[in-house]
Design a protein around this nucleic acid. Structure first.
Lengths: 246, 246
DNA sequence: CGTCTCGTTGACGACCTTCAAAGGGCGTGG
DNA sequence: CCACGCCCTTTGAAGGTCGTCAACGAGACG
C-alpha cells in the first residue's frame, strides 16, 4: 500500500503524449506542464480517493487501469467509469471527488497540481479544447454503457464488454481489428460484474456459456481468445451497422 | 408534423440566457450568435433527427423536453439523454447524429449553423469554457443514471426519477426544495420506462405502489404531489448524505 | 501443506417481463 | 349532446432471467 512518487520523466518520451489531455500542447506549454507534474504509482486494488475527499490534483492515466464507482446505502456498487491509459481523472473547478476511485491494476498517474493546471486551462486554449473533446468522448461511452445496463441481457452484456475491451486493446497497440483477436482481461469477475450491473456468479456463468458455445476460448481465467470477431459482435445485440464508436 | 421557423428573438430577453451555452458571452459575442441562429418548433412526439443523419446545426433547448435514444437490433430502446431548457444538442466536430432525438413535449430549439458556431468556438474562449462545464455536468448526470440503471430496483428507479424531476422543476423556477413538492410529469409512462430500463407496465405498477403507500399522490396521470420529500428520498436507495448533484 | 483469494457450478426463489384484457380521458363526428 | 374510437394507463396471471445462498475447485504464497 505504498504510494511511490517517481521523478518526472520527459514528456517527449511519454507513451500517452499524443492521446492525453496534453495532446495538442506546444513545446512551451509542455514545459509549463513538466513543472507542475508528479508521477504516482498504485498497486492493484489500492484506493486512490474516496467520494467526498478533497482532491488536490487532477491527473492522466499513464499505464494501468482505474475505476470510478458509486454506491448505494446498503452496499450495492456500480462502476461508472473505467480509466485506461491517456484518460483524464478529476474535474477542473471541483475540489471534492464525486466517486470512489480505485486502481484496478498496477497504475501510474501523471498528476498536476490543481491550481496551476486550472490557470493553464484558462490561459491556453489547447488544453481546454482537448479536454472538451475527451469529455465528449467519455459522454458517448457513458451513453453506450447506459444502453448495455438498461436493455441488454446478461449474455449480451458480457459479449459487449469483451468487444469493447478487444477494441481498446487493438487501438492501444495501434493495430486494426482482425477476424480473430486475443487479449488479457484487465478486470476480475467481480469488477466485470460491477461494470455490467450483474453479480459475479452471473458473469462467470455467462462466460462459461460463451465458451461452451465456441464464441470465445479461455487461456487461464484472464486470457480471452476470439476466433471470430463478427460472431462475438452478433452476440452483443447491437444494431449491425451503427455499431458502437470505433 | 410541421416544422415552423420563427424569426430570431432578442437574446437579452431569452429565458435561458444565463444557463445555456451562451451564458458567459459578452454583448459583442451575442451579436454574432444572433446572426447565425434560427428558432425551430416541434410538436410532442415529433422526431428531430435520426441516428446517422447529417446534422447541419447544433442547438439549445429554449422550452420543452427532448430525448436522446439508442436502440438494439430487435427494437429494444434505451433513453440516454433527457434535454431540458438550456441543455445543448449536438456535438461540435461531428456532423452525423449519434442518437435518435425526439421532442417529448412541444419544443423550441435555438439552432446555430454548424460552421459559424465552430468558428466561434475556436475564436472566443467563453463558449468553449461554458460548453466544457455543461458537458462535465452531463457526464455526472449520466453516471448517476448508470447507477440507477445498473443497481436499483424498479421501485427505487421510479423514486429516483421523481426526485430528479422534482429537483429540476424547482431549479427551473429558481425555487428551493421544500418539504412538500408538486409538479407535472413531462414524460409518458412509456418514456419513463425507456429512461429507467423498465417496461411501461412495471412503471405503472410501481407508481401505483408508491401511491398506495402514501409516498406520492396523483392528480390525474401526470400530476405528482410529494407530501414529504425526505420520504421520497428514502425510497431512492441513495446514500443519505452524498446524494445526487444538487 | 495450509490458507487466502479468485473463479466455477448448482439449487432455489424473487423480481421483473410478457401476454392479455379492461378502464379512463379526450377529440372527432354523427 | 352523446357516441365512438384512439391513446394512454392500469391491473392481472404466468413464466423466465437473474440474484441469493452454498459448496467446491484452482492457483499463489508463505
Amino acid at each position: 500500500m505504498t504510494k511511490l512518487t517517481v521523478e518526472p520523466r520527459d514528456c517527449a518520451a511519454c507513451p500517452i503524449r499524443h492521446n492525453a489531455v496534453c495532446a495538442r500542447c506546444e513545446a512551451d506549454e509542455l514545459e509549463i506542464l513538466e513543472g507542475i507534474k508528479t508521477y504516482r504509482n498504485y498497486e492493484a486494488g489500492e484506493p486512490i480517493v474516496f467520494s467526498g475527499d478533497d482532491m488536490e490534483f487532477v491527473a492522466s492515466v499513464v499505464t494501468g487501469v482505474a475505476s470510478l464507482s458509486q454506491g448505494l446505502e446498503d452496499g450495492r456498487t456500480q462502476m461508472v467509469g473505467l480509466l485506461l491509459p491517456a484518460d483524464f481523472l478529476g474535474r477542473p473547478g471541483r475540489r471534492t471527488a464525486a466517486y470512489d476511485v480505485v486502481a484496478v491494476s498496477p497504475l501510474t498517474l501523471c498528476c498536476f497540481r490543481r491550481g496551476p493546471f486550472e490557470e493553464l486551462l484558462n490561459s491556453t486554449p489547447h488544453i481546454g479544447q482537448r479536454l472538451l473533446e475527451m469529455t465528449l468522448d467519455e459522454l458517448d461511452a457513458a451513453r453506450e454503457w447506459m444502453l448495455i445496463l438498461g436493455r441488454k441481457t446478461a449474455r449480451e452484456k458480457i459479449a459487449s464488454l469483451l468487444s469493447i475491451l478487444a477494441r481498446r486493446e487493438a487501438s492501444l497497440r495501434q493495430a486494426t481489428l482482425t477476424r480473430e483477436a486475443s487479449f488479457t482481461l484487465p478486470l476480475t469477475r467481480e469488477a466485470m460484474a460491477d461494470y455490467l450491473g450483474l453479480t459475479l456468479e452471473t458473469v462467470s456463468r455467462q462466460i462459461s456459456a460463451l465458451k461452451r458455445d465456441g464464441v470465445i476460448r479461455l487461456q487461464g481465467t484472464r486470457g480471452i481468445e476470439v476466433p471470430d470477431f463478427e460472431r462475438l459482435l452478433a452476440e452483443t445485440g447491437d444494431d449491425a451497422d451503427g455499431g458502437p464508436l470505433i
